[in-house]
Structures are given as structure tokens and as C-alpha cells.
Design a protein around this nucleic acid. Sequence first.
RNA 1: GCCGAGGUCGUAUAGUGGUCAAUUACAGGGGACUGUAAAUCCCCCGCCGCAAGGCUACGAAGGUUCAAAUCCUUCCCUCGGCA
Length: 372
Amino acid sequence: MTEKKKTTQDMSFEILKTSSTSKARLGRITTAHGVIETPAFMPDATRGAVQTISSLQLADTKTSALVSNTLHLYLKPGSELIRSQGGLHQFMHWDKPILTDGGGFQIYSLIHRSSLKGKINAEGMTFQSPLDGSMHTLTPEKSQEIQFDLGSDIKMAFDDCIHADQDKQRNLESVELTTQWSRRAKEKFGAMSNELGVESLIYAIVQGGNDREMRKKSFEELNEIGFDGFAYGGWPIDAEGQFMEDIIGYTASLMPDDKPKYAMGIGTPDDIRKGVELGYDLFDCVLPTRNARHGHLYTSEGILRVKNGEFKDDNRPIDPVCDCTACVNYSRAYIRHLINIDEPLGKSLCTIHNLRYYARMMEDIREQLAIT
RNA sequence: GCCGAGGUCGUAUAGUGGUCAAUUACAGGGGACUGUAAAUCCCCCGCCGCAAGGCUACGAAGGUUCAAAUCCUUCCCUCGGCA
């Protein structure tokens, strides 16, 4: 780190308070588009929108930041287009912080879960677009270029994600590739930041699967390169669907306490509470939004599957304690009806509710941290 | 009244001698979803039973047959045409 680089990056994270009973901390991440009070949950707006709701409705849930995606926006509508529209903030009319994932996970996901072709080599990942079958190559450099086009506040280094049960050899390969790619991403990030005069942050993703040694190796190599924050990468739950607390906690313990720790893809409300206690500051997950579209709602009294017949004539709000638009204005019976007739408004209201539930949960967590 | 077509599990359909408690879709019931190819996917859906299995069923009643949703007879009903 040279003197002149000591600007936003070095001021980007401050810890306001540390818990005396766990590794949880109350903090603040400062970006070019404002502050994220941590611990924070960031919903996924993968393709430039949190599905079914507008950025204004998202703001109403008091969500402080969102996650969007390099790969998806690169494929459609193309990152140059978004740059020409003034960047993703302006394009989607969201003036708060945006974190963009690097695209590695999405390609892994495409290759892993489908018959689509894709291959990984030292250069990067070559894969077939699920949209039109065309072949593309994403490299660490290309991923950064796209993220600069998007204009995100926090950029992720391109990583090679694997499933938790991969063999040792593949795990090692993933760690080594992620290190190489992260180094290249960091170089590109530095060069583009200088060239464009843009101030943003870059986080790296720690791989290593369910193997402590590999996690340690991955973290140490990344730390040597130097990043503004570190993320737990990989898959957070085991084959039985259990939150992998041990390895996730261990990975957090490796990361420097003076930098943000980001738990990618986590999780359920319970998983997030555990994640906070393990020391994580940032979370993102598709669960609240995807589940909302399926009528699976989080409430102060537990999970409420609003499609279920028992709510047919229930005129109470989803959650009497909730202050979201859906709960303040509409009944379970009405929302059930909307979901059952596949009316988009039903999905929107459920999404608003779940995101407000998550936001309130994070508010509660921060409040508890502040007073204890 | 005559002629034609038809009556199948909530609805709409498939099945025209055994492989049929019976296809498919919708409706209905339940569940899954963790850095989003997810507005997706899975299960149940005659009755009893955890199950094996049993029982009752393809408009009604008879009949033919080892065997009928499927063939025959009569009746009831619906739709179209003619009176």
C-alpha cells in the first residue's frame, strides 16, 4: 500500500463496538454511495432488480445495500450498456451502496447444476450462455472491467467456487486458482481505479471447502495480496442442509478483525444470527426474496406459508409486529388470494415483507450489540 | 315425438374387453428453496389403512363374458337438428 492510496479504502470500515459474549461487532462501512451499518443484510438484485419490487420499494424496507451480479448483467443487457446509462446505480435508480459479485460462483452454478458446457483453466472460465448458447470467457480482469462498468461500490475478486464435498485435489486447485485470480483481479482493480479515478473497494473470497488447512492457505495467500475485506466463499450448508458453523466460524477467525467479514450466501434468519456471533458483518442470500415469491414468509411467530388453506379467511396481517407496507395495509387472506391466483402483487408484497423482516432483524441485532 | 351426438375420480379431458382406482390439465392439500438459468421444483389428491391390502366406483338397472368404463338391452339425463 502506498501513501497516496490511503483514501476511502483505509477509512472504509470502522468498528464501533465489539460484543463481550461473542465475536459479533457493530460497525460501519463507508462507500462512495453512503454508509452500511453492520451487521447488515444485502438482498440480491442479481439482474439489476430485486425480483418483483422496485428500488423505491426496496428503500422502503430500509435495506441499506444490495448485491448485484457481474455475470448476469454482462450477459444481459451487457455492462457497456449499463455504463452508457450512467452505471448501475443510475440505471436501477438506487443511490445506496451496491456490491457486485464477481461471477465465479454463477459460472460454477451453471456448470454444476446443468448440462451446459463450461471449463476452467488458469486463464479463467469459459462457459456457454444459458440465454442463447453462445460461448463466453470470463477472466479476473474481465470481471473487474465489468464491475467498473457497473460502477459498484464493493467489487468481488473473481473466484473458483467448489462444492463442500469436493475431493482434496479439486479443493486445492480451487484455492490456488482463486489466489491467482484474486491477485490478477487486485492488479486490474488498482489499475482501473487509478485510470478512472474511481474510489471503490475490493473484497476477496476465501475458498477451501470444508478443510481447515485449505481455508487457512486460501486466506493467507489472499491476505498477502491485500484486500479491503474478505468473504466466506463456497457453500454454507452441508448435504443435510445443516449450517456449517465450524468451518464458517473458523474461516471468520482467520480474517483480520479490522476489515469487514462477508458471509456469502448466508442465509436463514438463524444462520445469520449465528454468522453475526461468528464475527461476520455482511450477509446476502436469495432466501428472503425467493421464498417470498413462493409464499414462504418470516414472522415473529415463525414461518408462515401464506398459501396454506388455514389463512383463507384470516384478516390479520402477516405479522402483527411488522411495520412493512404489506403488514400495515393488507390481510393474510388477501395476500393468500394474490399468491394463489399468481398475481404479481402478491409476490411483491411478500418480498417487501420478508426484506423488511430481515432488515428489522438486522436492526435488532445492531441494537442489541449497541446496548450490551 | 323422430334423428344424431354424448353422459368417466371438484372441473375439463384420455381411455372403446383384461396391463384401470382409471390419462392429462386445472382446481384443492402439503412441502422444498442458503454468493438466483428458480414467477421454480417435489409430494398427495374415491373411501378405510402407517403399510401390505381391502372396499366402492366410469349416468341407472339388468345382461353377455373367466374378465366390462369399454359389448348388448331398457330407462334417465344433456346437447344439436327436424317436427
